[in-house]
Design a protein around this nucleic acid. Sequence first.
DNA 1: TTCATTATTGCAACTTTTCGCAATAGCAAA
DNA 2: TTTGCTATTGCGAAAAGTTGCAATAATGAA
Lengths: 139, 139
Amino acid sequence: MSHHTIDYIQRIRDSGHRMTHQRQIVLDAVCSFNRHATAAEILKRVHEIAPAINQATVYRTLNFLTEIHLLFSGTIDGQTIYEIATPTPHHHLICRKCGHIAALPDQCFADLIQQIKTEYQFLPEIDHWAITGLCADCQ
Amino acid sequence: MSHHTIDYIQRIRDSGHRMTHQRQIVLDAVCSFNRHATAAEILKRVHEIAPAINQATVYRTLNFLTEIHLLFSGTIDGQTIYEIATPTPHHHLICRKCGHIAALPDQCFADLIQQIKTEYQFLPEIDHWAITGLCADCQ
DNA sequence: TTCATTATTGCAACTTTTCGCAATAGCAAA
DNA sequence: TTTGCTATTGCGAAAAGTTGCAATAATGAA
C-alpha cells in the first residue's frame, strides 16, 4: 500500500498539525520499502534522499506519524518496526521468524472486548495490536 | 508473587545456563517491586544493592531471564516493563488515568487464539499482554 | 500578498542500550 | 578437591534514541 493512494496531507492537517517537507520525505522513505522497516533503515534511506534532515527529526516524525495512525508500528524480536497504515482499523499478525505481517480485522476482538467490559468493568482502548507468533510457513 | 516460591535456580540450570550472583540480585530487584518495573528502575535498585554490577550485565540479564521465561516483559506507553513470571500466564488491564492494574486470566484469550489459528493459520505467542483503557472508577 | 502565530526543525548534549573482547568464575568430571 | 571448559561478567566505547531550546517555516487571517 502506497501513501499516494491516501490523502495523507489532509490527514495530517485534520489532526491539527502541519505538513512539512521533512514529513513527506519520511513518509516516502517508509513507503519505498514496500514492507516493514526499522527506524535505522528508514533513517538511512531518508539521509540518502535528504542528508540535511536531522536524525532527531526522523525519530520524532516516526513517532508523530504513528500517533496520528498514518503509520503502524510494532515490535519484532525486540525491534520497533514501521510501515504505512491502511485506512480501515485492523491489527497485525507478525511472524517473529520471517517478519511477515498479515492483517487481522478489528472484528476479531469484539467478543474479547465485550467480555472485558462486562466481567471486569474495564473499558479497553484497543486501537492497534501487534500479535507476534509464527506464520503458516514458519511453524 | 515472589521468586522464592519457584525453583528459579533449577530453571536457569535446566535451560543450560549458569546461576550467578548477578542473576540472583537482578531477580531479587525485579521481585522487590511487587509490580512491573522498567529497566531503568531495576537498574537503579540493583545498583543500590550491589553498585559493582555493570549496567550491561543488568540489561543482558533482563533479556536472558525474559528469554527463558523467568520474567515477563511487555510494553506500556512505549516503555518496556518487566515482572516475575507467574506459573500460569496472565495479562493485565492497566487504567491509563489512575494507573490501576488488574489481572486478566489467560483463558480470556482462548477463543481469539483459536480463531487466529484456524482462520489465519497463524500460531500466536501471547505471553503477557498489557491492555490499556479505563477502569470502572475512571470511566 | 503580507503578517502574526506557533508548530516544527536543527543542533548539540544527554540518556539509554548494545557490543567486542579479555578476565573471571560456574559447573561437571576426574 | 582439583582441573578444564566455556558461559558470563566488567570494561570501555559505540550505537540508538531523546531532550531543551533558539531559529525556522507552515498556516490562517488581515
